[in-house]
């Protein structure tokens, strides 16, 4: 069962992560995103509201998505990252590379 859902509003693709961003779901999401970006997308927003954990492959996916969008002069952003995720993203300076915003209400995850 997919752990994410993808919706589109014009040239903007929204990815809602339902559970955790790790392992096989990353591979599935990579393929899905690749297909979306190939069809005239200028921005991708990844919503981590439902995610508790992001592993190294999840981080790699975020960077790869960001790199892919840069190549097409598009934009990649992440919203609703938990405190813990924000702390990890900051320590890896992902926050300097990707527009990441924190989950409102400060839910830890």
């Amino acid at each position: 069962m997919p752990e994410f859902s993808i919706s589109r509003e014009g040239a903007c693709v929204k990815v809602l992560i339902d559970r955790n961003l790790l392992g096989k779901s990353v591979y599935d999401l990579q393929k899905a995103l690749l297909a979306e970006i190939g069809t005239g997308t200028d921005s991708v927003v990844m919503d981590l509201f439902g995610a508790d954990v992001v592993d190294s492959s999840g981080i790699a996916l975020m960077i790869a998505a960001s790199n892919s969008m840069r190549k097409v002069n598009g934009k990649f952003s992440v919203v609703n990252a938990s405190d813990t995720m924000m702390s990890i993203f900051a320590s890896m300076r992902l926050t300097d590379r990707i527009d990441i915003s924190e989950r409102s209400g400060g839910t830890n995850g």
Partner: peptide, 15 residues
């Protein structure tokens, strides 16, 4: 960050 590549390649798990 560039070493990670893009979505059309194999994802490196290393940062």
């Amino acid at each position: 960050f560039d070493a990670i590549g893009t979505l059309d390649g194999e994802l490196s798990k290393k940062l």
